[in-house]
């Protein structure tokens, strides 16, 4: 494996390293730690993965940075661009669409004044449409950070968005 020796290998925060290393006995390979490690690294770096963080994860697991970057780009929950402090994922798949998700998308755009995937100027929020989140009996729904908000109405969405710090 060739690495660019001109730049020093970036390091992961100590607590992230420790959390990753604690998971090592679970798997026969270090590569299997890529997803768990990226989840931990992303949480520790403001909800997205800057290139140096991706490189740090790769270095810690002794993998090529490109390999880890490819994984980041493949999965919808990993972000290689800045996101808001709060990340809103609105399900617009069929079951939610049938119950008004498209109207809620308009509400989000109006309320936040940004386009899909953009971060509000104050860094507070970003929103995206998301594929089915498995909460179709309480449609329409959205996920804010790690939490599900269900049986939404336009008023409820406004209220939730305004309540985000």
């Amino acid at each position: 494996m060739t690495r660019n020796t001109a730049t020093p290998t970036p390091a992961l925060p100590e607590d992230v390293r420790a959390e990753i290393d604690a998971l090592r006995p679970r798997y026969p390979t270090a590569e299997a730690l890529v997803l768990p490690a990226l989840h931990l690294a992303q949480r520790a770096s403001g909800g997205w993965l800057p290139p140096e963080m991706i490189a740090a994860v790769a270095a810690h697991l002794d993998l090529a940075p490109a390999k880890v970057a490819a994984v980041v780009s493949f999965y919808d929950m990993f972000h290689d661009r800045p996101v808001g402090r709060h990340r809103i994922r609105l399900c617009t798949n069929l079951s939610c669409q049938l119950r008004g998700a498209d109207e809620l998308l308009e509400v989000l755009a109006e309320e936040l004044g940004t386009g899909e995937g953009e971060v509000t100027p104050d860094g507070r929020c970003s929103y995206v449409q998301f594929e089915c989140l498995g909460s179709c009996d309480t449609a329409p729904m959205m996920m804010v950070d790690d939490e599900y908000h269900e049986n939404l109405t336009p008023d409820r969405v406004r209220q939730i968005v305004r309540g985000l710090g």
């Binding site: 798949n93 079951s95 594929e131 089915c132 498995g134 179709c136």
Partner: peptide, 11 residues
Amino acid sequence: DESEPGTFKDR
């Protein structure tokens, strides 16, 4: 990995 749109039984 329950992701089939419309499915929420495993959750």
